[in-house]
Design a protein around this nucleic acid. Structure first.
Lengths: 183, 183
DNA sequence: GTCTATATGCGGATAGAC
DNA sequence: GTCTATCCGCATATAGAC
């Protein structure tokens, strides 16, 4: 439940972001959103047309935040390999997973072009941005392919960590990738 | 809908397997299972105590099938690297994703130790089995870490492919990984 | 802006007839 | 073994009062 110091629309958006992360779109009901936000039916349907519009707003905000956080590492100091390492080793809420990547498993998100677009764009941007940095290293390997491997290792690392109930497999996957990239 | 040449319990299990793959546990209702199986309420609740038991049966079967398919490549002919390559390049239903990995995003599966166990065991087995094959190569890298990277690349590759609506990012991620493993 | 009332159908089962 | 009837509550709103 969010503090009453913020307006209702804002609390509804943040509650939706949390629930989409924890339970996905299919697993999240308007009632659950309202309860977490501490608002009633009337308030929610006054500010938003329904679950879909609220989710769209929430997903867009999460996507933007994710890009901004990644960009901090990408445009930070150091050699290309150091920046990639900084990105991979950044602190993460491993057991919660990626709030954008998890939406790819949601049938109703994938079936809705509007909800799906920010998911597609964000992961596409990430691959492209990383490909540029990989290219800077002057490697003889295909930068686009290596970039896809990097993003996939993170996304898959979350899957392994959640299955195991421990961040260890995520950390192993990242270590394995870095050892392959740097040797 | 499965052919009437098979008994009801069997049709219910296969329908559940399909729906868990397509929509996850939270997104799958008893009614949807019954309709796809061409059976009624009575039949389903005669053969199974409810949605949970049916899902458990379905998940266990899927897990076993997945291990058997992987083992075909792992114990096939060739050098360790050739067998890993054969496994990575094997034909896959990329846009559907991994029927076991996707369950890690399902809150009700993760919250239920019984449903969760086969997911944990299967991905754990996969990492362990691959670590053994990586060790056979005599690499100086950590086999467990590299094995985690391999499994994560596959699981994350599915995520990227689903987001993009195309198998291309999956194929890129696999190519990138193979180029890192073999150069 | 927010509240309460009301609506239709689905989720997930139980009960008992056939 | 399968069918139909019935149940309670949630999902996802809409309507109108305050």
């Amino acid at each position: 439940m969010y503090s009453a110091g913020v307006n209702a629309a804002e609390r509804l958006i943040e509650s939706t972001r949390d629930l989409l992360w924890e339970r996905g779109y299919v697993g999240t009901s308007p009632k659950a959103i309202q309860q977490r936000a501490g608002s009633g039916q009337g308030s929610m349907y006054h500010h938003f047309s329904g679950k879909q519009e609220l989710a769209l707003t929430a997903i867009r905000r999460t996507a933007e935040e994710m890009r901004a956080r990644a960009e901090e590492q990408f445009s930070g100091p150091g050699t290309p390999i150091e920046r990639i390492t900084a990105y991979l080793r950044r602190e993460r809420d491993v057991l919660k997973g990626c709030p954008i990547g998890r939406l790819t498993q949601d049938p109703d998100v994938m079936a809705d072009p509007l909800l799906r677009a920010p998911v597609d764009e964000t992961l596409g941007w990430l691959r492209g941005r990383l490909a540029g940095i990989v290219a800077e290293t002057g490697t003889k390997l295909d930068p686009q392919a290596v970039a896809a491997t990097i993003v996939a290792t993170l996304q898959g690392g979350y899957v392994l960590a959640r299955a195991a109930g421990s961040p260890a497999p995520f950390d192993q996957a990242v270590s394995g990738l870095l050892s392959l990239l740097t040797d």
